[in-house]
């Protein structure tokens, strides 16, 4: 190989890359919080809601889980304006991420809810708790404890998947990498650096979620 890798060429662009990194982190955090909220609502609707609502949620989940994220993103960003709903690239990116994670977490949380023994719900109701109280204090409590690891890995998968939002020019880390590569033509160097940044981000997210899990689900 006669080519010499020149990482020094990336130095002048550190602020661009840093901005992209922050964007990706914010995108992940916001879509995690909103996506898990959507997922919780969806899972509750599927297990306790009326039948028609459950079926709508089921269709939503299957549609999202069986199509690529990039197509969902293009549909929201390019397709919806045809219906009169115009979104900026940042809004479209956030929306697509929430919709995507919402579907996956619906399915994960539903599995957790179904693993809660029926007797616990009946016991809660017989203690004159309202349906909401049972859901909050008896069902979701246990469900989240059970599915927390699965949910954590889904969050990391979605974080890595967010690289795709660069394709509608939302300014995330991958967009920054493309920008730098188009300026100094050190494609391989910048993509290698950014790939390692994602790797570090994935590892950090994993340990952060594990630490968070220990705080939330403290052994009683």
């Amino acid at each position: 190989m006669s080519y010499k890798l020149q990482f020094a060429e990336l130095l002048p662009y550190w602020s661009v890359l840093l901005y992209g990194l922050v964007f990706t982190i914010v995108l992940t955090i916001v879509s995690t919080v909103a996506g898990v909220a959507v997922g919780t609502a969806g899972a509750a609707a599927r297990t306790f809601g009326p039948g028609w609502l459950g079926r709508i949620v089921a269709v939503y989940v299957e549609l999202i889980r069986n199509t690529p994220f990039i197509v969902q993103l293009f549909f929201i960003f390019f397709g919806l304006p045809a219906l009169g709903l115009k979104l900026s690239e940042t809004t479209a990116a956030f929306l697509a991420m929430v919709i995507n994670l919402g579907a996956y977490s619906t399915e994960i949380i539903r599995a957790g809810i179904e693993a809660v023994p029926k007797g616990h719900i009946e016991a809660g109701l017989s203690l004159a708790m309202t349906k909401w109280e049972v859901l909050r204090h008896v069902v979701l409590n246990q469900a989240f404890r059970k599915i927390y690891p699965a949910l954590s890995s889904q969050i990391i998968i979605v974080m890595l998947g967010s690289a795709v939002v660069s394709q509608i020019s939302a300014e995330d880390l991958t967009y920054a990498a493309n920008y730098v590569a188009s300026r100094n033509f050190r494609n391989f160097e910048v993509y290698l650096l950014v790939a390692l940044a994602y790797l570090a981000l994935a590892m950090l997210t994993r340990s952060a979620l594990r630490a968070l899990g220990r705080v939330i689900f403290k052994a009683r």
């Binding site: 190989m1 006669s2 080519y3 990391i156 890595l160 998947g161 967010s162 690289a163 795709v164 660069s166 991958t174 990498a177 494609n187 391989f188 993509y191 290698l192 950014v194 790939a195 390692l196 994602y198 790797l199 994935a202 590892m203």
Partner: peptide, 24 residues
């Protein structure tokens, strides 16, 4: 496994696309 599961597939595509080209 850590590398391929911990980096976006898109980055891997870019790395292969531009990485192999370095060998001419």
């Amino acid at each position: 496994i850590e590398f391929f599961q911990g980096t976006p597939l898109l980055m891997q595509l870019f790395l292969f696309f531009f990485g192999i080209a370095l060998f001419g």
